[in-house]
Amino acid sequence: MALTKADFAERLFDELGLNKREAKEMVELFFEEIKNSLESGEQVKISGFGKFELRDKNSRPGRNPKTGEEIPITARRVVTFRSGQKLKARVEAYAGTE
């Protein structure tokens, strides 16, 4: 069971009293705003949670793992996430059930 946008919206409706439409819009805009920032080259830092960072990667030689054929991996920009201290500590404490 994974947490989804519908779950976030449900909670905003239950806890903050936003109506369903407002709650849904808020969740959409929240993720859209982070995407917008990253798209325009701005990294996003959310204290207590983590940082969404951008990295420009040079092209490098790669391989098709199935055929072994060599194919270059093109230069690209990627998003990485670094969790903040607080989140890290909370997750570390998770004992795991699987």
């Binding site: 994974a2 947490l3 989804t4 946008k5 993720f31 989140l87 909370r90 997750v91 404490a93 998770y94």
Partner: peptide, 9 residues
């Protein structure tokens, strides 16, 4: 995440 649940957006 602290309770081991995934998030999918």
């Amino acid at each position: 995440l602290a309770s081991g649940e995934r998030i999918e957006v």
